[in-house]
């Protein structure tokens, strides 16, 4: 695969960093070179959070992403901030339950997924992030769905084992969303 730069952005508490960790571990499992860089600061629930994940077959140069290949925007400010930075031909995944605008650019592929609403309807309100990730995996054959359960099991602490199944459910919802 070519080097893929993924930027995930949203509010604190939406699982932005966790979603990034999932992708990073997925890359690790597939023997790729990986970097995961969180925004850090006096952050709190409701503040902004973002995280940069680079997946590559060659050593990762800068872990800082200026122009993402894939943008996952979980709120409007994040979309507005990064929409123009996405490389032409790149992908934008946005939570259309929280973002009610359309992307005006025509040189990118946009996926509108009402992830927060879908998660609420299924009683897994905190897993909108993983619904979006499911869609990312589905639309990037290089990333594939294979082994996702192992990655989820690795990320979810043993005390919260019940969450493994729910994370898998969210991933599958994203995978199947058309």
């Amino acid at each position: 695969m070519k080097t893929t730069q993924i930027l995930i952005a949203g509010f604190g508490g939406q699982g932005v960093l966790f979603a990034g960790k999932f992708l990073a571990y997925k890359g690790l499992m597939e023997d790729l070179q990986v970097s995961w860089l969180p925004s850090y600061g006096p952050e709190m629930r409701g503040g902004t959070a973002n995280c940069s994940v680079v997946l590559s077959e060659t050593p990762v140069g800068s872990p800082i992403i200026s122009n993402p290949d894939v943008l996952i925007a979980m709120n409007l400010p994040s979309l507005q901030k990064y929409v123009d930075a996405v490389v032409p031909g790149g992908q934008i995944y946005l939570d259309s339950a929280l973002i009610d605008v359309k992307v005006e650019r025509t040189d990118v592929e946009v996926f509108y997924i009402p992830a927060t609403q879908m998660a609420k309807d299924e009683g897994i309100a905190t897993l909108a992030n993983m619904i979006l990730i499911g869609s990312v995996l589905q639309n990037n054959p290089e990333l594939s769905f294979e082994g996702t359960d192992t990655v989820v099991s690795k990320l979810v602490p043993p005390k919260k084992a019940a969450l493994v199944e729910l994370n898998m459910k969210a991933l599958n919802m994203g995978k199947e969303y058309k």
């Binding site: 070179q33 990986v34 970097s35 995961w36 860089l37 969180p38 850090y40 872990p63 800082i64």
Partner: peptide, 10 residues
């Protein structure tokens, strides 16, 4: 620096 401290890599 803060970046290398905060980032994760294999």
């Amino acid at each position: 620096d803060g970046t290398i401290g905060q980032m994760m890599e294999p």
